[in-house]
Write a protein that binds this DNA or RNA. Structure first.
Lengths: 146, 146
DNA sequence: GTATCAATTGAGATTGATAATCAATATCAA
DNA sequence: TTGATATTGATTATCAATCTCAATTGATAC
């Protein structure tokens, strides 16, 4: 039993919410994904094996996962909300290729430190941040040169 | 005559597009704004003096301004496209207060340099980036302490 | 196990932003 | 001034996000 089920169970108990078969199914499907899924992405995946689970439920459940700190909302510039795994994943930023849509996760300690530094200078208490760099990835650049 | 009118005129000429009274009006209104306006924000402002200008025109014209490099799209985390002035404004990032909604524009050369550095490391050719830090601003923190 | 009751569900409807359509109109080069 | 062409505004379409509500289900007490 992965840790996430435990987190969810605890969260539900604490909030007097219920563990339903749908929530189990959706959690399982979500944990299997590797990419940054949108509600519709995950709904399409789930529909294949569990055609009885509705769209609204997937939508609500992903929001629940976010509140339970199992999922994290990411905004990759298209206009849809996407979710990625949060538990066991450290904070990272994204390099997003505008040609192939691929993204690379990066973490740079120095940048994080600098961010803290100039927040302090502005009297600003940072809570979370988002950094995305759009450009062209190594593979696409190689393709272009051919 | 501000420089932006010239930029727009040149852009239109180059693309065989036309300078209309609506485009003048919308540009004038846009240049007067200081915040990051959404289509609806600007439409509401314009409607007061020019009730004949339609919503779709404001929408299309802001996109035109973006293409002409007069406006820049910003994404402040809500799900609407906002535009800020581009000409005469250098690149900057945003500190966004989650309490009062205010934002502070910041620029940190060091961070920009670091970004370039680790893009290079990843073989990634950066084109543009977006960095937003969400948190609590000085004023709101002061209020909280009272 | 069963009753109880609030939480949950799924279908469908709604909202809100964005974008396409199209007939009427305006612009501008010649 | 004119004709070719772009633009406009009203309307409609699209799509993700979100709400509604009656029917159902899970957790808890008995």
């Amino acid at each position: 039993m992965p840790k996430e089920v435990e987190i969810l169970t605890d969260f539900l108990k604490e909030k007097n919410l219920k563990l339903t078969s749908q929530r189990r199914t959706i959690l399982e499907a979500f944990l299997k994904t590797e990419k940054h899924v949108s509600v519709d992405d995950l709904y399409d995946i789930i529909r294949k094996n569990s055609p009885d689970i509705g769209h609204a439920t997937v939508f609500r459940t992903l929001r629940l996962f976010r509140n339970a700190d199992i999922a994290k909302e990411v905004d990759l510039g298209d206009k849809r909300t996407r979710y990625e795994h949060k538990y066991g994943h450290n904070h990272h930023d994204h390099l997003i290729c505008v040609q192939c849509g691929k993204f690379i996760e990066v973490l740079d300690e120095e940048i994080e430190k600098l961010q803290d530094k100039f927040c302090k200078r502005a009297g600003f208490l940072p809570q979370r941040h988002k950094m995305e760099i759009f450009g062209i990835c190594r593979q696409c650049r190689a393709k272009e040169k051919r």
